[in-house]
């Protein structure tokens, strides 16, 4: 995986995979006759962007354990783009809520943000991702030194909040199996990290390669 053409190919594949859901939604929005977004397109856009944000967030979390289990150090360079794509879908989700879902009722957003715990939880997760996205650059990494890693562990908190946000919106206490799957995945990944930290004493992965390049 050290050769440059395979690296380019892998990165291209990642970009295509991460952009495809968004392109599908955009195409659906401009082709209502396809019925791709269903009868209530705004609601579907909101749900789909949120779902992909959570999916990519979970995928980002899975990178470190996967790397340790397989020894594939090259996976490290997927971590930042995946995390940034998770943030991008979360941002789209937020924009769909603010601009489309609440269209014509913008006055009620501030009140909702204060009154609705499930919206507050989602917003907190989004703000964490925003902070992590801003500080994801090499410059910030240097500036924050050792704290950068500590701060970026907040991604676990964001994932937990996102799962709660996702489950809490349901009309009944019934939680969809796929929400449970996310909850289980995030739980397993978190437990893995905690155990790894306890056994190695530092919780930091032993570097087999130099730190990943900053280019995302």
């Amino acid at each position: 995986m050290a050769t440059s053409p395979s690296r380019i190919a892998a990165k291209t594949a990642l970009w295509i995979a991460c952009l495809a859901p968004a392109l599908r939604l955009v195409w659906g929005a401009f082709h209502p006759e396809s019925n791709l977004l269903g009868v209530n397109p705004v609601q579907y856009l909101l749900w789909a962007c949120g779902w992909w944000a959570l999916f990519l967030l979970t995928a980002t979390l899975a990178i470190t354990p996967l790397m340790r289990l397989t020894g594939w150090a090259w996976l490290a360079r997927f971590q930042r783009p995946l995390g940034l794509f998770a943030f991008a879908y979360a941002a789209l989700h937020f924009l769909v809520y603010a601009l489309l879902d609440q269209a014509g009722a913008w006055g009620q957003i501030p009140r909702d943000l204060v009154k609705r715990p499930f919206i507050v939880v989602g917003l907190l997760a989004f703000l964490i991702l925003l902070a992590l996205a801003i500080t994801s650059t090499k410059g910030w990494q240097k500036r924050l030194k050792v704290n950068w890693k500590r701060i970026h562990r907040l991604i676990y908190l964001a994932a937990i909040l996102a799962v709660i946000h996702f489950a809490w919106k349901e009309k009944v206490g019934w939680v969809e199996p796929r929400v449970l799957a996310f909850a289980a995945a995030v739980g397993v990944l978190l437990v893995y990290r905690v155990i790894a930290k306890a056994t190695t004493g530092t919780g930091r992965r032993t570097r087999t390669t130099p730190a990943p390049k900053a280019s995302a």
Partner: peptide, 20 residues
């Protein structure tokens, strides 16, 4: 009377963009 988790002040008529 709001639902505890969301407002009931407005609604989206299916097929319309702006809430009423």
């Amino acid at each position: 009377h709001d639902h505890p988790r969301w407002s009931q002040k407005t609604e989206r008529r299916i097929g319309e963009l702006l809430r009423r």
